[in-house]
Amino acid sequence: MKVEEKGHTITIKDTQGDIATFLEKVTSGYVGFKEHNIIIDLTQYNTLTLQEVVSFLSLSNKHREAKKSFVIVVNDFDFNEAPDEMVIVPTLLEAHDMIEMEEIERDLGF
C-alpha cells in the first residue's frame, strides 16, 4: 500500500494487486487517515467488478458522515452501475477536482 499526502488529501494506492487485502489494510489503517480527504487509487486494475468497487461503500459512508471526501479512482468501469452515494471517477485529476468542489460546498454549508 502506497500512501501519498498532499495538503488536506491522502491518496492510497494498492501495491499488492489484491483488492480484498487492500481494503483490509485501508480499513485497519483508517484511524491515521480519518482527518484527511481520501482518494482510493485503483487505476492499476484493468477490470474491477461492481462488487469489488462496492466493497468500499461502508468505509466511504463512514468517512463522508465525518464531513470528509472519499473518492475512488477506477479506469475501466461502468459508473452508472455504482451506488449514488459513492463518488467514483476515472482519473486522479478528476478526484482532486471533486474533492475541491466538495470542500467548497462544505464551506458554503451545502
Rank of each mutant, 00 (worst) to 15 (best):
M1K: 00
M1Q: 00
V3I: 12
E4P: 01
E4G: 00
K6N: 11
G7I: 00
H8L: 05
H8S: 10
T9I: 13
T9S: 08
T11P: 00
K13E: 15
T15K: 14
Q16K: 09
Q16C: 04
G17F: 04
I19L: 07
I19Q: 01
I19M: 05
A20N: 12
F22G: 14
L23D: 08
L23C: 11
E24Y: 14
E24R: 15
E24I: 14
V26C: 02
G29D: 13
G29Y: 05
G29C: 04
V31T: 10
V31I: 09
G32M: 06
K34N: 12
K34A: 05
E35D: 15
E35P: 04
H36Y: 15
N37S: 02
N37T: 02
I38R: 10
I38C: 13
I39N: 13
I40P: 02
D41M: 03
D41Q: 07
D41H: 06
D41A: 04
D41K: 06
L42M: 14
L42Y: 09
L42G: 09
L42N: 07
T43D: 09
T43Q: 11
T43N: 11
T43Y: 07
T43I: 12
Q44K: 10
Y45Q: 04
T47K: 07
T47Q: 10
L48W: 06
L48Q: 08
L48N: 07
T49H: 11
T49P: 12
T49M: 11
T49S: 15
L50V: 15
L50Q: 12
L50T: 13
E52S: 12
V53P: 03
V54G: 04
S55L: 08
S55E: 10
S55H: 06
F56K: 00
F56V: 05
F56N: 03
S58V: 07
S58G: 02
S58I: 08
L59T: 08
L59G: 05
L59E: 02
S60N: 10
H63M: 07
H63R: 06
E65P: 02
E65N: 13
A66H: 12
K67N: 05
K68L: 10
K68S: 08
F70I: 10
F70P: 08
V71N: 00
V74C: 01
V74F: 01
N75D: 09
N75E: 06
D76N: 10
D76V: 02
F77Y: 11
D78H: 13
D78G: 08
D78L: 11
F79T: 06
N80L: 08
N80Q: 06
A82T: 12
A82E: 06
A82C: 12
A82K: 06
P83V: 13
D84I: 03
D84W: 01
D84F: 03
D84E: 09
M86L: 12
M86N: 00
V87N: 12
V87P: 00
I88F: 03
V89R: 08
V89T: 11
P90L: 05
P90Y: 05
P90Q: 06
T91Q: 05
T91R: 02
L92D: 02
L93Y: 01
L93N: 06
L93F: 01
E94F: 08
A95H: 13
H96R: 14
H96W: 09
H96Q: 13
H96M: 13
D97H: 07
M98H: 14
M98P: 03
M98V: 13
I99G: 11
M101T: 11
M101G: 08
E102M: 12
E103Q: 14
E105Y: 14
D107T: 04
L108C: 05
L108M: 11
G109W: 02
F110C: 08
F110K: 14
